[in-house]
Design a protein around this nucleic acid. Structure first.
Length: 590
RNA sequence: GGUCCCAUAGUUCAACGGAUAGAAUAGAGGUUUCCUAAACCUUUGAUCCAGGUUCGAUUCCUGGUGGGACCA
């Protein structure tokens, strides 16, 4: 879809004048390269309304707009139900100049306020590749929504309490020998994760021993003493036992230090951090209120439930018979809390894996039944799992791709490739490090974000992430190359060459640039950063073709030289801006 | 038992119901006395199966097959 208003307006007017008919939306797209033209309108759907054959409609429309708007349209061609319109160089040039100030970003507020929750880690182990996907998607989506003028609140709900952290705590108490991040030099989240793994090792041994004694696997897993100890620790935590709370606070603080470093390196941030230890009791009252209102009911066993079988869902327990919460209880609670915390909030977005699809369907339905109008706007940004060739990643089995390690590897690969190419020898050491980081992270982030969120990602650690072709570094390279041009030309942005005509490569570039506002819009509407990732790649490719065939610095016509520099500059700016929406930085040289 | 998601070149990804299904990578071949060759150009190669809806289906519907997830 192309939103050049003057194009659509004139075509729409032509429809009205010729057929006394104004289409609700005109299906317009770029003309395929096999045909003559710039923009194509598909005519079939109008045939019925107008009562003429598509080709006749096309001919009349084409003739009309070319005659009436000669400054916009230079010619037309009708091919089997498609109207291909060619626009004038003058039109493209004037549009190109007109949008200089704001390429695609909506500057006026939309009035919409959105809270997007992502990351939401457990505090018992370090982040892995799956978390990277979550964080990048969440952060990127927030930036994309901002382009549409929405106010966005980035939120992180840290899962800081529960049996998982108690397991790490217990193992540390038993076998920790007072280890700390300081005295071991181990990053805090990794240290806590180490004890989580240790717990599991002992747990498995105990289970094995119990099975030898004749217990079933299920029974053995329930009765393993170490697990019962961990459960006792959780009860002590809930009772507020001071030494348990103290240990809990200490180990969580280690994890937070570790997370902070990882977040920083990934380039993600948050406006608001929630802790589950402060929210896990929320929701009970709301469920009880819902019971009074008759939205929920009490089952024979005393549990409180909702029956969603009319909605194609099942019965769902909201409060157990002993009055304790389940997962969804606190999700109801936190959602309601946010509605009152942000009275203007129109939408909640949850970035959570697709295994929770059902959970969120139920949650949103419950919120709706409780009468919260925001419920209809709630969205679960569901994404597929990151899998290894061997299958699912399992932290307890050590088959996870650790986030910190992976980022280190990306850095090393970037360093190696850059050194082999040997273009930046004379850069100071600090600059080189920064460059490797930009390239390595660019490759990683692009690799993840170019894929449709709902699809699962297969990550093969044996085949490293590419740096050539459809990759982040490819796009970064185009940016760096343009910066080199601009440096050599000592180019000032205020310089704009006056040209009358454009060649094909220039036209392609300008057409692409003019379409970027729609790309942002589409990415926002579809909740899909991959839309931007794929489009910025196309833009980079188009620049490369232009660059390959047409001299820029060496162009002898001064006005044309300046124009090409300006076009290069604009392309670089747009690459930078679009990559920024994906959290990818650009280097001035590489 | 029920629900949801996915299936496209050897591989990794694209394609508002639109024209001859695009890229990348891998394979074959070519481009550098010339603005950065992480580039550019040429070339081989794909819609899981069977029906249906219609001017037109990778896309929508029905039923299979295969993979994944969830609910009870």
């Amino acid at each position: 879809m192309i939103a050049h208003s003057s194009l659509l307006e004139s075509v729409s007017k032509a429809f009205n004048d010729l057929f006394q008919f104004i289409p609700e939306n005109i299906p317009i797209s770029f003309t395929k390269k096999e045909f003559n033209g710039d923009y194509t309108i598909t005519l079939f759907q109008f045939s019925k309304n107008i009562g003429q054959k598509p080709d006749e409609i096309g001919k009349k429309l084409g003739q009309y707009v070319v005659e009436k708007y000669p400054h916009i349209f230079s010619s037309y061609e009708v091919v089997k139900g498609f109207l291909n319109l060619s626009v004038t160089d003058q039109y493209l040039l004037s549009k190109y100049q007109a949008v200089q100030s704001q390429w695609g970003i909506v500057n006026h507020p939309s009035g919409k306020e959105i809270l997007i929750e992502y990351s939401s880690p457990n505090t018992n182990k370090p982040l892995h590749l799956g978390h990277i996907r979550n964080n990048l998607l969440g952060w990127s989506m927030a930036e994309i929504l901002k382009t549409q003028g929405h106010k966005v609140i980035k939120a992180n709900l840290i899962n800081d309490r529960g049996i998982h952290i108690c397991k790490s705590m217990l193992a540390w108490k038993k076998w920790g020998n007072g280890e700390t991040p300081e005295n071991t030099g181990i990053k805090g989240d990794h240290l806590v994760g180490k004890y989580y793994v240790l717990f599991d090792k002992h747990f498995k041994q105990e289970v094995e021993a119990l099975i030898q004694q004749g217990l079933s696997k299920e029974e053995a897993e329930k009765q393993a003493p170490i697990l019962q100890e961990a459960q006792q620790l959780l009860r002590d935590w809930e009772a507020g036992k001071p030494e348990v709370i103290e240990l809990w606070k200490m180990m969580n603080s280690w994890v937070y230090q570790g997370f902070e470093a990882t977040y920083k390196r990934m380039g993600v941030d948050f406006d608001k951090i929630y802790y589950e230890s402060q929210t896990y009791l929320l929701g009970k009252n709301i469920v009880l209120e819902g019971l009074e209102k008759g939205v929920f009911y009490k089952a024979n066993d005393g549990s409180i439930r909702i029956d969603l079988s009319n909605e194609g869902l099942d019965e769902k327990v909201l409060l157990r018979s002993d009055g304790t919460s389940v997962y969804i209880t606190q999700d109801i609670g936190t959602a309601v809390q946010r509605f009152s915390e942000y009275p203007n909030l129109s939408q909640l977005i949850y970035v959570v894996g697709s295994e929770q699809d059902y959970h969120f369907k139920v949650l949103f339905k419950i919120l709706e039944k409780l009468g919260y109008p925001q419920a209809k706007e709630c969205y679960h940004l569901s994404y597929g799992m990151v899998e290894l060739p061997t299958g699912k990643m399992k932290s307890r089995e050590g088959t996870v791709v650790d986030a910190d390690n992976l980022m280190d590897e990306m850095y090393q690969t970037a360093k190696q490739i850059t050194e082999e190419l040997g273009k930046v020898h004379e850069l100071p050491e600090e600059e080189k490090k920064r460059l490797y980081e930009i390239i390595g992270m660019g490759a990683l982030k692009y690799f993840i974000l170019k894929i449709d969120p709902k699809k699962k990602i297969l990550f093969n650690p044996q085949e490293s992430i590419d740096f050539e072709g459809h990759t982040g570094p490819f796009i970064q390279y185009v940016y760096a190359r343009i910066q080199s041009l601009l440096r050599k030309a000592e180019y000032q942005v205020t310089q704009f060459g006056n040209v009358e005509t454009l060649n094909i490569a220039e036209r392609e570039l300008i057409k692409h640039l003019l379409n970027i506002p729609d790309v942002y819009k589409e990415a926002a509407q579809q909740y899909n950063p991959a839309v931007i990732a794929n489009d910025v790649y196309e833009l980079a490719k188009k620049f490369n073709r232009f660059y390959q065939d047409h001299p820029i610095l060496k162009e002898t016509n001064e006005q044309h030289r300046l124009f090409r520099l300006h076009l290069s500059y604009t392309t670089a700016q747009m690459i930078k801006e679009m990559l920024q929406k994906l959290g990818i930085d650009v280097p001035d040289r590489m």
